[in-house]
């Protein structure tokens, strides 16, 4: 057993897509692990397989072969409903395009994962607390179109946090933001990592974003090209 506990352990993960007659090897046997509380960036050009890898880590897709352990549980063999439960409890998603429900308030958006978790009693209080922790305590009844891009991404981060997941999975979290808001979002994510110890995985092609990570994994053509450990 390592000194730090592995949150994620991936062994020889591969994914093959069938596109008509051709087989596309999106991932060709990737192995790595992530420690609890670590900040990891996954980088690579488009087509390198980083989106596929992120979908696997986020339990949105099932690998063709290989094993994926999340907090010691082999998730690559779970069925649809079990995967939904894992996504709900253990993973917080932050997307490039925010992906908020347009007609719901910030509060309702943050409450959504709690609803799917079947939490009824203190749902509102927990959602409000999550919004306060990202600095939007005064905007909980605003709808997404009444918020700036940076604020919308904060709502998305609050939504990712609210179920106290093991990892936060951020896919190009600053891709749709101006550089100032982008910096603020990165700062917020790192603060959360420091104060709450949430493991943070950032998928990006932007070296500046990746620069905040303690470790960077470089992907190319579905394989790990190299790792750099920083700080």
């Amino acid at each position: 057993m390592a000194e730090k506990e592995n949150v994620i352990r991936i062994e020889n993960l591969a994914k093959v897509y069938q596109m008509g007659e051709i087989q596309v090897h999106a991932l060709r046997g990737v192995s790595f692990s992530v420690d609890r509380g670590e900040v990891l960036a996954i980088m690579g050009p488009s087509g390198s397989g980083k989106s596929t890898l992120m979908n696997m880590i986020g339990c949105l897709d099932i690998p063709s072969s290989g094993d994926y352990f999340l907090e010691g549980e082999l998730v690559s063999s779970l069925n649809d409903d079990q995967l939904a439960l894992v996504r709900n409890r253990k993973i917080g998603f932050v997307f490039q395009k925010f992906n908020l429900l347009a007609r719901a308030t910030a509060l309702a958006n943050v409450e959504l994962p709690l609803r799917y978790a079947g939490i009824n009693g203190d749902r509102k209080a927990r959602a409000q607390k999550a919004l306060e922790s990202v600095g939007l305590g005064d905007r909980i009844y605003h709808q997404p179109n009444e918020l700036s891009g940076g604020q919308q991404q904060r709502v998305a981060i609050a939504r990712a946090l609210v179920n106290e997941p093991a990892i936060i999975l951020a896919d190009e979290p600053t891709g749709n933001l101006d550089s100032k808001s982008g910096e603020e979002i990165m700062k917020l994510l790192l603060d959360l990592n420091k104060t709450q110890g949430t493991t943070l995985l950032i998928v990006t092609h932007d070296p500046e974003v990746a620069a905040v990570a303690e470790r960077i994994i470089h992907l190319r053509d579905g394989s790990i090209e190299g790792q750099e450990v920083r700080s």
Partner: peptide, 16 residues
């Protein structure tokens, strides 16, 4: 479709 995808990412099961 995107909304459905998002809900599933947030933990919605098929029956939800």
């Amino acid at each position: 479709t995107r909304e459905i995808g998002l809900r599933k990412a947030l933990g919605a099961r098929k029956k939800d």
